[in-house]
Design a protein around this nucleic acid. Sequence first.
RNA 1: GGCCCCUUGGUCAAGCGGUCAAGACAUCGCCCUUUCACGGCGGUAACACGAGUUCGAUUCUCGUAGGGGUCACCA
Length: 478
Amino acid sequence: MSKVRTRFAPSPTGFMHLGGLRTALYAYLYAKANGGDFILRVEDTDQQRYVEGAVELIYSSLLESGLKYDEGPDIGGNYGPYIQSERKHIYGEYAKKLVELGGAYYCFCSKERLESLTDENGNRKYDKHCLKLSKEEVERRIASGEPYVIRQNIPTEGTSSYEDLIYGRIDVDYKELEDNVLIKSDGMPTYNFANVIDDHLMGITHVIRGTEYLSSTPKYNLMYDAFGWERPVYIHLPTIMKDATRKLSKRYGDANFDDFVSKGYLKEAIINYVALLGWAPKDNSEKMTLTEMVEKFSLDGISKSPSIFDEVKLRWLNGEYVKALTDEEFYDIARPFLEKSKVNGVFDLKKIAKLLHSRVDVLGEIPEKIDWLAELTPYDLALFDNKKNKTSADVARDLLPKIKETILAIDEFENDKIFATLSEKAGEFGVKSGAIFWVLRIAITGQSVTPGGATELAALIGKDETVKRIDYSLSLLG
RNA sequence: GGCCCCUUGGUCAAGCGGUCAAGACAUCGCCCUUUCACGGCGGUAACACGAGUUCGAUUCUCGUAGGGGUCACCA
């Protein structure tokens, strides 16, 4: 059997969408799991939708997520060029050939005529009007400069079938298909044509793409057959949904790789999570490196039904990746987020990072977790309520002055010392030490969940600030 | 609407004729830490429905319902 070759063929229309990223990932995994090559091809035949810089974004997203392609526009290969707009002449040639083979024909119909074909349901199906044109008339009209397109000639009856590796046998009646445009009036091919020509010319053995092509694949097979080419193996992938009824789409703006990266998700975690949407390895592993995914990848683990994107689980996975980092690594990647916080320039960021490390799932939430450190503002006194430690606002009102006094007496204001000193006072104060820490923590932070224990935080903000905040809390308590 | 496809807990998902129907996230509870978190342990929770086939269906077939996809000079 020939070497497996898969491809990822995005359009440069904007950011790298997570759905697209998953398609790329599976194409990559399938190729690598089978010792094959993974190719990148840019499908930029629609000049209207072209977005400046999008091509570069495709390169960088793929690079960052580790999906290293063996051939592509920026790295070359033996089957180039890998950008469709640079292959325009190739399509024209093959289109002409397909016309000769009877698989396509020239069409001169006006937009108005096409629109008049719309039925009561708003659907439109081309009526093969120009198929009847004589060869002479076609040549004459082309020579006179009349604009034209080339349409695929689809049989009016019969059924086409093929075997999809995920969905099994797919049957579609030809009468459901339309004579789509293959070459547009500007000379550019449509996806319908270019994908077939390129996949064949580039030696693609396995076509991996979304289910939106499941029922139009017979059209492509018709062309492979007409040219006498071997049809590729098809692997269609289920959609990723935003919720039960809505597709995860660019329109919602929150489904781009870059968005998640800037929100503080690690690239490895994003790829890992996306891999799990629609695929489960035999051993049910969840946290996996790309290399492990290659080792475990197999098509029978891919599901047929759409799956809903769950950011909550992504958060968890991301947290796993974050915790696996060393403190130094964490500080490095957390730094931009720490610097965005209000505590930047006030407290030692490295110390804060250490406290934060085991308490952060997504880096983007760092500022909100520590902004309060810069300044204590009014908070809900109900935070003092804690049943386990038997604390309340009343208890706090009574305890805080004693705690303050104790703290004032501490010379070396560092965590261990503060902790030990306050612990010893529990008996004297007539409460559990847990109560002291709970009350102190709330009094100096005003937060229910904090990046560190009471004494760690006290040490971080310093003795003066700690005392100042205790006074402030006492004033709130009245 | 026509056609194609899909249907296991709130979510991701194991399962591929006989299971007390895995696991993960989330949720709830307990424990640990004489401080927050981390961590550990446990609970709640699912085969869309109806007919078949079969000794036996989550698993096979058909239908119903629900959902998705598609019907462009977009990919």
